[in-house]
């Protein structure tokens, strides 16, 4: 009887959100991590500690080994483009390659979204070279959300933004996470931000993940 209960708990545990087991890439080995639906897990750590690599490994952009599953379905059961569409990875530096901003989107930019992020209404027609750092970043977030990802992997989404834009972006991301019940892994350098947005806070150090005490951190 007891063992059935346990296996059921394990089962449901795996069904929830994003599950990572025994993930290894480059020098990082056997990382375990799970993010439940609507949960924001913040990731702190020095630069070079492997936070970005972890996100890229989960998105299957770099060579890695291990079990990654979403809502209980293994990564390998999706085609690579399908997996990456579901797992929205936002790089630290957003790049643009087409002639205009619009061409990077699957559907035209909505006025509402542009307004939400304080972006000009005709930004879609602009050449990317015209964008400021902050505009690149904010449009990059819209570009990621445009693919309707089920999980968010965010690499310092507010790094290039001033305080005001930063809190707007935080809110847009948290709204999306709430509406879509999306699990989110949020890399940040700011302990304040981690305390604000994270339900759990992990630190990447010496090639491993340790959970930090929220109460201590936000004091």
């Amino acid at each position: 009887m007891g063992s059935t209960v346990w296996s059921m708990i394990e089962m449901t545990g795996e069904m929830e959100g994003l599950n990572i087991q025994d993930l290894s890439f480059i020098e990082w080995e056997h990382l375990d991590l799970s993010v439940a639906e609507s949960e924001v897990v913040c990731l702190l750590g020095d630069s070079g500690s492997g936070k970005s690599l972890l996100l890229r490994a989960i998105a299957d952009l770099i060579v890695n080994e291990g079990e990654v599953s979403l809502w209980g379905k293994r990564r390998e059961s999706f085609s690579p483009p399908e997996w990456r569409k579901r797992v929205g990875y936002l790089a630290a530096e957003i790049l643009w390659w087409e002639e205009t901003v619009d061409l990077h989107f699957s559907k035209p930019l909505s006025r509402e979204d542009l307004d939400k992020l304080n972006l000009p209404h005709d930004a879609g027609e602009w050449a990317p070279s015209r964008l400021s750092m902050g505009e690149r970043q904010r449009l990059g977030i819209l570009r990621m959300l445009d693919r309707s990802p089920e999980v968010l992997l965010l690499d310092e989404p507010t790094a290039n933004l001033d305080e005001n834009s930063s809190s707007v972006v935080e809110q847009v991301l948290l709204d999306y996470i709430g509406e879509q019940s999306a699990p989110a892994l949020w890399v940040t350098h700011s302990k304040d931000q981690a305390g604000r947005v994270g339900h759990r806070i992990l630190e990447m150090k010496n090639q491993s993940l340790t959970e930090l005490d929220r109460a201590v951190l936000t004091k």
């Binding site: 952009l61 483009p81 569409k85 790089a91 790049l95």
Partner: peptide
């Protein structure tokens, strides 16, 4: 870096 971001958006190689 551009190719990686295109892949990340769900484009095929």
């Amino acid at each position: 870096a551009i190719i990686e971001q295109r892949l990340a958006l769900g484009e095929t190689s």
